[in-house]
Design a protein around this nucleic acid. Structure first.
Lengths: 203, 203
DNA sequence: CCAAAAGTGTTAGAACTACACCCATGC
DNA sequence: GCATGGGTGTAGTTCTAACACTTTTGG
């Protein structure tokens, strides 16, 4: 057995979205051993000649059916026994999609109520969630929302990711003052309460 | 040729220190092809049964002769041709050492004046430097300084990493008010100017 | 008119910025 | 006594945090 082992490289996307006032992760139920029946991240192996980013992009297109999904690396997992079949290093990615772009037929589980997962995928998700909290900024926020949205939705997204409540007046003032959002001039339609003005992210 | 290629996993530590008022990186001159004569990061391959962290720890002990070196992953590089000999993915780490712990016999180059480097090591260093700026906090700062230090040295370290000047009075007030440092009661010795009080990081 | 969510202003305290001179030591 | 870096206070501004009621729509 050589000291320098050749290993497989996987990419594991933690695809987040926000629905039903909760942060959700896309997971799939395994059909084969090991961990048959357990949920897992929809990852895949890096192919010959591909970068990890290209492999991930390929995977995301396959899963979500669109090219324009934000993603970024956050950590690489290398525990020798993390996959019992063969030594595999996994490059963990975060990917973010807004509710209005998620395809039908996929299973989303709330990150706060995950069952036992296959492999070390729970660790991967935990680390991804921490990354999201720590790196939350306008660039990430906009991934969760459609082009036009009420300010209160933005606040809700903030609160769900940061797990913290904000004062509504202060939040609105800050977002506008910081130049993160601007009014579109449009409003919500057909809601059974005062319609909200729609905002968009600036530049 | 199989679609799923097995690859080598390297760990490449970007070891930073601050000397001569500049951020320096530990580099070595390659003795063999490819890139013979060019400088490279002192990386190594992950061995059988090792995590990347363990491999890095082993490497750092080998290079610096001490176990207590702060390090953290920051990015994984997977371009297929990054090493012409064999496909190798490299997990980039940052490691930080204070000037008083650096061993003799190593070459340190200023990050602002690097020559052409072997492989994609320039990219790795550029990304490491950006990570350092973005994640600078008390935990990282303390790695650059000895146990006891004058406040002005702390300010200098800050300025070098952030590439920005600070007001001396404001900086001192902030560090003390934020509870990052505290006085030791000791002072510098044998300096041909007013001796500075020595501080230490709190808790 | 009721329910539901949207929207709005003020004030007190905290944090941040800008700014210039005196102090302690060695030689 | 001079050169060298160490050390200090104040005032204006900006940012943050706390707080409760009115508005607009659909049903």
């Amino acid at each position: 057995m050589p000291a320098y082992e050749r290993v497989l490289i996987a990419v594991d996307p933690v695809i987040f979205t926000i629905t039903h006032d909760h942060l959700q992760v896309l997971l799939r139920q395994r059909e084969k051993e090991p961990f048959k029946g357990k949920y897992e991240l929809p990852g895949g192996l890096v192919q010959h000649g591909e970068t990890a980013e290209l492999a991930l992009s390929r995977k995301l297109t396959e899963i979500l059916g669109t090219q324009n999904v934000f993603f970024t690396q956050f950590h690489t997992f290398t525990a020798p026994q993390r996959d019992p079949r063969a030594r595999t290093a996994s490059i963990g990615f975060i990917a973010l999609v807004s509710r209005d772009k998620i395809p039908a037929g996929e299973e989303w589980l709330s990150v706060d109520q995950l069952p036992l997962l296959a492999f070390d995928h729970k660790d991967i998700i935990t680390k991804a969630r921490a990354y999201l909290r720590q790196h939350l900024d306008a660039e990430l926020l906009r991934q969760f929302l459609p082009e036009k949205f009420p300010l209160n939705n933005l606040q809700l997204v903030h609160e769900i990711i940061m797990q913290e409540k904000y004062d509504n007046r202060n939040f609105r003032k800050k977002m506008v003052a910081a130049g993160i959002v601007e009014e579109t001039g449009e409003s919500e339609q057909n809601v059974s309460h005062r319609p909200a003005k729609l905002y968009r992210f600036k530049s």
